[in-house]
């Protein structure tokens, strides 16, 4: 369950940063990304997938949230 720092870049895309792993990636897609609900599966541009517990409304970016890595058994 890595802590992930999330922010929006100038193009409004979600930037995903895992301090422990120096992983800095742009998110390709976010499962729920509407003013009412945010979270679910997030696909990164390097192909890896993470899961965020969906929440009501948009988080106040930048923010640190806990995520679950989906596609590998680390």
């Amino acid at each position: 369950m890595p802590s992930v720092m999330l922010k929006k870049n100038t193009e409004g895309k979600l930037v995903f940063y895992v301090p422990k792993k120096d992983l800095e990636e742009v998110a390709e897609s976010v499962e729920f990304d509407s003013p009412e609900k945010w979270g679910g599966e997030v696909l990164l541009s390097d192909g890896s997938k993470y899961y965020f517990e969906p929440i009501d409304g948009q988080p106040d970016f930048p923010v640190t949230l806990r995520a679950k890595r989906l596609d590998s058994g680390e």
Partner: peptide, 12 residues
């Protein structure tokens, strides 16, 4: 970069 990221999150 660590402190800059922290200030971004905490102080926007």
């Amino acid at each position: 970069n660590y402190i800059a990221r922290h200030m971004e999150e905490k102080y926007k």
